[in-house]
Design a binder for these strands. Structure first.
Lengths: 342, 342
DNA sequence: ACACCTAATTGAACCGGTTCAATTACAGTA
DNA sequence: TACTGTAATTGAACCGGTTCAATTAGGTGT
């Protein structure tokens, strides 16, 4: 494996010159540059990433850590939405030849240890956080360390310039309006897990939407899910077992909505007629479910790219201009899972 | 940021000793070890990953590259199955504090350039390949470079010890048997894209299954999809527009099966009665679709972990024992999307 | 007291890049 | 021809670990 010194010798120049050629410095005479390039070609030389990182203090890698969450012992699978996020990030990352490194670890002490590891060992240049929890210790730590990071979502205050979020509350208000306009008065709310930070924001949107439409909230029609299809199913059975069941169910993600539809159908009821269902995310399958799911669409692929750009600017300490704004408007996509109540 | 020399000075030992403590060498006297550990604690020292990589030639990172594929200009989204694979890999990786780095790049010249980059710059210790294509240039290159890599799937010959696959052909044979036993004779086949290497293997399974059951294959009932819901939908409309339409459709992944079910339902037909549908993968949603999807289940989370272990052994040049075997038996999960033909 | 052996410790050399002060090359001017 | 200014090049020092031959410490046997 040739080193920069081999190239220098072959091209009869110094290592400094080779380095300048590699990094596109304008200080190199054209003829010399050609000679160096030919040497690089001839020896099939590629700079070693680790050596470069060591002296530049940059790794050209950003990180993302999934908090594995277990409920009753079984792992909650990653939401397909995250895959779209990854797609968006990596698509944007490739143009600046940056990689996205992934870890998965259960929330808790070991999680913090991993974050500390990564930050202090300079294994990555920055982090993308998502699915923040209430009083999330990760944010405090990263802030304290002044380590570059961006958040998909908000946290505690809307201040700071390192987050991008979708106005989920606004989306829910729109969904409630849609349901009430169809004639629904008993609307159930399938909540995200209470540990999640967004749970509070989403709930506010629901409360606001119901208030705006003058519909009372029945706390018997609120169920805490965990984003899995299973919990959507369980919550829906719980709702439909009530003496006074709902005619519509708002679900905080599409997976729970799919579970909800399944539960409704298992009781011989028709989704969109007997019970309406609204989801959140608009995963690609939502359009192909039976019936197609009314849901709140977030431009997740675009958000992934925007988060990446934001993070890179943060890392490079460049001024940040969030042209598209940092609080994006989601869009209610009406399909056949919602209809007038019977 | 303290370095190993700072720690050495603080603990009044040499850098070599600190390094020995860090790497768990038994050559250090217990008392000295304690002093060093206290210094590490006091200075809050963490070794720099790049420096370590430079001298050990190991990065503790493995890579995975998604080939972005565009058809008619639009990006094919990543299959949710891949997310489960990532989950499986990262779950296994964390215990050996290894990260998984991700890139996405369109297949073609730039793709090969990226592979060469990564291999020669020693940015990663090994690669996990998936979704191999016919005559895939990546395999030849990596073999030639003797770079450690493992494949989810097989390639050209079943030789080599660096792959794990599911016996897709066997799964399809079982699916065909299931359909024929229900009474189906006109079975359509929704194929993967022809560029994919597994397409040939899967087709052989279909042919074998049909032959075993003495059912003729009608080439008018074969359609090449691209793994997207959309293509499942298109293929199904194509099938149902035939003068002599099928009573069952085998789809090579669940996403296409969801599209197929949607198309069937759009025509006012009932899935599992008028037309049966079988998928492949058993993604988590398959159990919650309407009707629940009969599909071929692969232990994808487990495969992710096994691929990781295999790769680590390859990297460490340790003997490999694939206890579970490298060709795993998939399982046909019968749900309500298949039934007797009318 | 001395030889001998093992356990522990040392620190210079190395991994392979980048950086920048110092030096050299060369063209333009007096 | 000497002088000046800019362009190009040089190479030692540095980034922060690991490694290992050489050295020292400490214990045992005679």
């Amino acid at each position: 494996m040739p080193t920069i010194r081999d190239v220098a010798r072959y091209a009869q120049v110094s290592v400094g010159t080779v380095s300048n050629v590699l990094n596109g410095s304008t200080l190199v005479k054209d003829e010399t540059r050609q000679r160096v390039l030919m040497a690089i070609e001839a020896l099939n030389y590629h700079p070693t990433a680790a050596a470069r990182s060591l002296s530049t203090q940059r790794t050209n890698t950003i990180g993302m850590i999934r908090s594995e969450i277990r409920l009753q012992g079984n792992l909650i699978e990653t939401d397909p939405m995250v895959l779209d996020l990854i797609d968006g990030i990596t698509s944007a990352a490739i143009s600046s030849s940056t990689g996205l490194t992934f870890w998965a670890i259960p929330a808790g002490e070991r999680e913090m240890a991993l974050y500390k590891q990564l930050v202090t060992s300079r294994q990555i240049d920055g982090l993308i956080l998502f699915a923040l929890r209430e009083k999330d210790p990760r944010v405090a730590y990263l802030r304290e360390q002044e380590f570059p990071f961006v958040i998909f979502g908000r946290f505690e205050s809307d201040e700071g310039d390192n987050w991008i979020d979708v106005d989920g509350a606004g989306g829910i208000e729109a969904a409630v309006r849609h349901l009430v306009e169809l004639g629904h008065h008993r609307i159930a709310y399938l909540s995200p897990p209470h540990e999640q930070y967004l749970t509070g924001l989403r709930w506010q949107g629901f409360v606001q939407g119901m208030r705006d439409m003058n519909v009372p909230i029945d706390l018997a029609l609120v169920y805490e899910g965990d984003f899995s299809e299973k919990s959507g199913q369980l919550g829906t059975h719980y709702f439909l077992d009530q003496p006074n069941p709902p005619t519509a169910i708002f679900c905080n993600n599409d997976r729970m909505a799919f579970g909800a539809m399944r539960a409704i159908q298992a009781r011989g009821l028709v989704v969109g007629q007997d019970v309406s269902v609204v989801g959140f995310d608009d995963v690609s399958l939502a359009r192909y479910s039976n019936p197609p799911l009314t849901t709140i669409s977030q431009p997740i692929h675009h958000i992934g790219g925007a988060l990446f750009d934001l993070l890179i600017n943060l890392i490079n300490q460049q001024p940040i201009d969030l042209l598209g704004g940092k609080l994006l408007k989601p869009e209610l996509i009406v399909r056949q899972s919602t209809g007038m109540p019977r």
